[in-house]
Design a protein around this nucleic acid. Structure first.
Lengths: 229, 229
DNA sequence: ATGTAAAAGTGACATAAGTCACTTTTTATT
DNA sequence: AATAAAAAGTGACTTATGTCACTTTTACAT
């Protein structure tokens, strides 16, 4: 296993940048960005921020995965999003003066940079392209969530699991999907036992294959069909 | 019944403005706004825009109510939001270059103004307060939808109905909640029959009272308790 | 390497909520 | 005012999904 704990990432050669909101930055903007950001190594299951606390800045994922979740009445996690390298997490909260409504926590070892709220807002104020990118991103997330709400309200758990696996296959691009059954259940919105039984069905139907806890999608087409029912 | 069909609304004396994103506009900004907007009277159940079509501008509700909904796989409506006077509908779509993901349609007679996309974007570009208001609004809607997703995924239909009634009571501030049982079911995310049975339960428990189809909330506290279970 | 705790998985059972088929009531339309 | 059409409401039945109680497996820490 690599020791990533003391790796310092410079924005100039950050590979994740090309998929990020900063992709349009020109060279000296990247230098400026690099000057204000700090880097940190996170172990598995470490929080970036907690529901109820006050936002201090945004988190930019260089590598690793982060789950973003709310808690329902009985404290059950509802995973809203799984962020991957290149994504900026927590920027929604920069524009309201309110505490976080969600918690973000690493799903695996991750390298994550941090940009201070005032520095970030300064960037947004002075860089029209970034600002437009952010407005577009906020809008498209809003549209995504319409789909999520509709799915939750109308699809069967089987359908939602199929949908979730399609999303996760893209998030874990190349790699196998690697989530605890409980996390997966909390993303799909079901009980862990139900989730396990449905995964078993999918396995028996040859739609997926498991390697330990890791899930490989064998037949995306079938998932699409099941998801749309 | 008033004949509202030819009423022309001027932004200068629009009563809905005080609750809107334009509330901070100074006098000459309001004059400019008034110059670019057009007014229209809508009958009940008339669409403002349709899912899949291209956004041409935003709709500003002077009076009346509008439902915003997506369609699930079997064409079933999922009501995402009920907008009331003062709200601007369809502005999310101004910032992405994509077709509408939702349909908006009046729930009752309404007076609705329209602002062209380029005029609106021009306002957003030149007016920092409006822009910040919009970013804040996008953010807070995003946060709201986290709650919706969590509710849909984790609460019982009874709990979701209680939650919906609390929201609707605020939207229909003062008036009685006036929605078809089907619309209400499509907001809560359940079958119409189930919804009717649950309303009956609430009536028997003295939590609500109906006046024809209209619903009066008698005990908000109980709804809060039921919603949070 | 080994023990312990967490995660994965199974089985039996209960029930919330969906579906279908129908009646009654309300709301529009001619 | 009469009729048609839509909405509201009821009953019987089915089933998907949650819950509880438990075993087996995996992962991690000493």
């Amino acid at each position: 296993m690599l020791d990533k704990s003391h790796k310092h990432i410079t924005c100039e050669n950050c590979l994740a940048k090309k998929n990020s909101l900063f992709k349009s930055f020109c060279d000296d903007q990247v230098v400026d960005l690099n000057a204000v950001k700090t880097c940190a190594y996170y172990k598995k299951n470490q929080p970036l921020f907690l529901e109820g606390s006050l936002p201090r800045g945004v988190f930019c994922l260089n590598s690793g995965k982060v789950k973003v979740f709310a808690r329902g009445e009985e404290g059950k996690e509802q995973i809203i999003h799984v962020a991957k390298e290149g994504e900026i997490v927590g920027f929604r909260a920069m524009f309201s003066e309110e505490p976080y409504k969600v918690t973000a926590s690493t799903l695996e070892e991750s390298n994550i940079c941090f940009i201070n709220k005032s520095d970030f807002l300064n960037l947004v104020d002075t860089n029209i392209t970034l600002r437009n990118g952010i407005m577009k991103e906020l809008s498209s997330e809003l549209a995504n969530r319409v789909t999520y709400i509709t799915n939750m309200a109308q699809k069967s758990v089987r359908g939602r699991l199929a949908f979730a696996l399609i999303l996760l296959e893209e998030i874990y691009a190349g790699e196998l999907i690697n989530l605890t059954r409980e996390d997966l259940a909390n993303f799909v919105g079901t009980a862990t036992e139900t989730l396990i039984r449905l995964l078993k069905d999918f396995k028996e139907e040859g739609i997926i294959q498991t390697h330990g806890r890791k899930i490989e999608v064998l037949n995306r087409e079938d998932l699409l069909k099941i998801s749309g029912a």
